[in-house]
Amino acid sequence: MLPGVIGTIQATEAVKLLLGIGDPLIGRLLTYDALGMRFREVKLRRDPKCPVCGESPTIRDLSIHRQTSDACATTENGHGEREGALATTAAR
């Protein structure tokens, strides 16, 4: 059931963005804890040192994905929306 909540939020955001209405989740991370049944919001800021969208980006094309595709490949394949964990907990 958990993916239904997040996927439906993604669909809602998509429609809002397509129509240009409301406040989209830009710069905000919405987290959902199903056991505690709590939503929380974390403000996100742009990082001026970001390697992609920062002031002096080092990633200007996708070549890094050829070099590191083995390094950041995950063993999980197919049916595991699992790796999100790290991101979720790190954001708290």
Binding site: R28, R45, R46, D47, C50, G84
Partner: peptide, 29 residues
Amino acid sequence: NVHGSIFQFEGMATVFAPNKGPCYRCLYP
């Protein structure tokens, strides 16, 4: 990019809009 991910009983969602807000690498380089 409308981003979402889940793990066990937790999930998260955000929107990465180029030059209007942060991107995924701003969070996790």
